[in-house]
């Protein structure tokens, strides 16, 4: 039976079944739609990962983070400074085996320029339970403009394997209600969003 000759030698000229054709068109159109939507989210969405990245020596980044913590330190928790920067400030958060440093205290509805980098290996910034996950590299300073939309206590865990202590690597962000009139906060947040690309 395997010696019978092929049914149609010119397979590339055969007609295509209707159902098949419809499906090809649907699949293609859906691909185009997903592409357009991804681009569109840069304009209509409020969650787009920033591309602002600079090369930085780990020691230089450590210095910046320490200066930042000293400048805005509010208190201390188990030897770790809790830092309360003003709205709109440059905020430094460093990852190192096995700690996110320092602890931050932010205000709901305010935007901050968060500088993320690592002093040693790659780490995974994973804000919980909000579930924002960003890769952190040594030597790259990644700047994200972040606006908390809920108050409470949030954990940062590490979700890039970084050695045997990986599961002990945590950090914390407190988000407090804004003290002054609510309207003001909302207005500044809205203005900030408005100026996004």
């Amino acid at each position: 039976m395997s010696v019978t000759s092929p049914q149609s030698r010119v397979w590339w000229k055969e007609p295509v079944e209707k159902v098949e054709l419809i499906w090809v068109v649907v699949a293609f159109a859906w691909g185009i739609f997903m592409f357009v939507f991804m681009v569109a989210w840069h304009f209509i969405g409020r969650q787009n990962l920033s591309n602002e990245t600079y090369r930085v020596a780990p020691s230089a980044f450590e210095k910046k983070a320490e200066d930042f913590a000293k400048k805005y330190q509010a208190r201390e928790e188990d030897g770790v400074p809790v830092v309360k920067p003003p709205a709109g400030a440059d905020v430094y958060l460093l990852g190192r085996t096995f700690q996110w440093w320092p602890i931050l205290e932010l205000e709901k509805g305010q935007s901050y320029r968060i500088h993320l980098s690592s002093l040693d290996l790659q780490h995974g910034f994973s804000l919980q339970p909000t579930n924002i996950n960003i890769q952190v590299h040594p030597g790259l300073e990644h700047i994200i403009t972040l606006t908390p939309t809920a108050d409470g206590t949030f954990g940062i865990i590490c979700n890039e394997y970084c050695g045997l202590g990986h599961h002990t690597m945590t950090g914390k962000i407190y988000v407090t209600q804004k003290k002054v009139a609510e309207g003001g906060a909302v207005a500044t947040a809205a203005a900030k969003i408005g100026e996004a690309k």
């Binding site: 602890i103 339970p129 865990i157 599961h167 945590t170």
Partner: peptide, 24 residues
């Protein structure tokens, strides 16, 4: 994962971490 659990992670109770955290 949708609830935030990390991959490649030994302890989701974070019992040895200096700053504690609890998953849902």
């Amino acid at each position: 994962g949708t609830l935030g659990v990390s991959r490649r992670h030994w302890d989701i109770t974070f019992s040895d971490a200096s700053i504690s955290f609890q998953h849902s």
